[in-house]
Design a protein around this nucleic acid. Structure first.
Lengths: 228, 228, 228, 228
DNA sequence: GATGAATGAGGCTTCATTCAT
DNA sequence: CATGAATGAAGCCTCATTCAT
């Protein structure tokens, strides 16, 4: 009967198991990178946290660096995707940017572990090849085209935006910032992009749309667990 | 006794030699940190470059970290001091900030080694305790008080400024940026701080004052040597 | 019962498949041993080449070593058997030895893979227990008894013979030897065994009988394939 | 006073220490290679035997292989040199070869450790670049030129000679050979090279000259110690 | 029988640091 | 003070072997 495709069954079961173990490793890696940084020796901690053997790690990742890339992909790209969808409804590119940055900062406020991860790994991680850069570049270009932002070379706008956000997250990860931190950062960035003070203020102060992060990001559950 | 004088002499000679060896070590460390980053294994390369023995290194620095701190102190603080003096003549705080950031970016353009060092070590290094942060905070506060900048929490302004500048330097360290890169960055930062577009543009476009960096920074000679 | 026949059939089919998989493994192992040597890590390469899973390997061989033994058996013993048959027609033991060694060297010339295998594994493999030693001992003893060879302790003759041949094969495996290499080696060995220079020369120069190696050795096909 | 050249003194003391440690490592390595073979993992045993730390090993040798090369150099080249001198007095190249091989075999009989080393590492070790090959090639060529040996390609003579000797040593290392083993091997080799049976027999039977091996070979003491 | 994920012992290598000279 | 050999903890990585499916 069900003997028809035993190899198919076995194959699928194996693939499932593989995927699960891989996910366990990636998830376990986040707090470790968050604590020790990009260049640290990480494998021992990760396999301990994931509860797998040393050898198993090397069945999935060739190195430290490989693992970091996987984590970045999952964290970074999943995050940007959900933010992107959430702000897609806004017709004004300036508002999309404002809400996008605001949401990013909000998420890191809610998930201290994530904040620390970004603080430790952000620069090495969020290189120009990442989705974040791609997406932001698009938005800024549109904003310039539509006359919302003042014309300027994209890289410079991106750097300002990314740099300011990164430093903000860094500060958040060290604790003790007010609820207004996010909006203030957004405000300043918008002015930098060329909005007048009034518009920047107004956009930055708008309530953020709801972000269903659990639904979108496989890794978020663990990050909140790990830090309450 | 008659021992006083010769002993003094010997002491002074010894102190001189001590200082020289220490300087050699610090200088040799810069390219190594610039190439390998903050967390890398560094001592072997440094002592090789400085031409001293392993043991000697530990006569001057207790550890890796110690050395990095020394390098940062020398590079960062010396740099900020000379910039500070150079821009002290401007009565307008906005212009002081503009010229200051412009000069910083200019220096990293002229000294690729320095750019790489900042790119690799900047975040770890230029913490809020550094002179840079102290000085900038002052300037921004004054700018706000004098109505040149829009009011905002200092940390946020500092983060934007530092983040944008750091990312700019990072980009410079990777090469291929135009001569207008610095001014554009300054322009955007000034707008972020609250200048209107016209003023920001004007200030950012002003020619930078001359910076006699050789005179001020003991380490600059080596950095330029190493990179032509 | 009526179960007898189908079960027999199934059994036979299963046994066939077993034998086939085992042969695939042994064959795949030859180039790996030839390249990496006796002590190297081998299993991964072998199962990859054979296209079977890790687990399957252990259904056939208990260990690395087991596999090597199987390969040796197949390669060594099959080879000696066909050589033995081929030279069985010669009445003169000296001629049997001459032709035997000549054929061995010829085969390694034609099959570089085999040469490399012998070069890497020969000493470990061709111990005194192997068929080769058994057979050669017989022949030499007969040669002594018939007065063709000078009397001497068998082990010494065997060592000289095996050592000279092994080194010759090693050299062949490194390439660049002339067609006369085999005959010259045989010539020298025969002299060592006690033939006079003239007889040695004559026997060594005789054309070798044809050896139908494909017919006799299950593994030869693959070895030639692998090396063209 | 003696303070004139303190650095010279220090330097020499250090160099002495270095040389001693290196020698300890090389010596300790011989029995390990002899027991475990060329390809084995050897470092742990060697450092244990030498009583140095893991790190120290890497101060002297980059790898397993490096160490083997050093051992070979010391053992092989020192041995060939002393043998060479010992037989230099004989005017007849055939006698030089006979005595040389005889001495080699004798030494391995007297030093079981050495025999086992050669047995395990000989083929990998005594490549054509070694002094042994160089020296033997010279002798054989001279023998041919003087008409003592029959003309033949040098590589073939070398291979026969080396192969036969190597196998003889292998057998010796397994124990239980008679005192006549050496002479018999020499006898057969000489015949192979083209001496007539009578001359070969006579030369092989001659008593060997005395070899003061302790005096010549720095490592011999330890090898005999280690094996009584 | 076949599969392949998981294992973990075993070996390798680096490098900050110490210390006798 | 300078030297540089020695240290050894700390990480890295491989691969023969097991075992649930």
């Amino acid at each position: 009967m069900s003997d028809t495709a035993p190899s198919d069954h076995r194959t699928r079961v194996a693939a499932d198991r593989r995927e699960k173990t891989r996910a366990r490793l990636v998830q376990s890696a986040i707090p470790v990178f968050a604590e020790k940084g990009v260049d640290a020796s990480v494998i021992d901690d990760v396999i301990a946290a994931a509860g797998v053997s040393r050898g198993t790690f090397y069945n999935y990742f060739q190195s430290n660096r490989d693992l970091l890339i996987a984590v970045n992909h999952q964290l970074g790209d999943e995050l940007i995707l959900v933010v992107k969808e959430t702000v897609a409804g806004f017709p004004d590119p300036a508002e999309r940017v404002a809400a996008g940055i605001g949401l990013m900062i909000q998420v890191t406020r809610d998930k201290p572990l994530l904040a620390r991860f970004v603080a430790k790994c952000g620069l090495d991680t969020a290189g120009p090849s990442s989705l974040v850069y791609q997406y932001l570049a698009d938005q800024i270009q549109k904003g310039i085209d539509e006359g919302r932002f003042l014309p300027c070379p994209l890289p410079i706008a991106l750097d300002m935006l990314a740099g300011a956000t990164l430093c903000a997250v860094l500060r958040i990860s060290q604790g003790g910032v007010s609820d207004q931190h996010g909006p203030e950062v957004v405000n300043m960035i918008l002015r930098g992009l060329g909005l007048n003070a009034q518009d920047a203020q107004t956009l930055a102060a708008k309530p953020l749309p709801h972000l269903d992060i659990q639904a979108a990001c496989s890794l978020m559950s663990s990050t909140s667990q790990a830090q309450g």
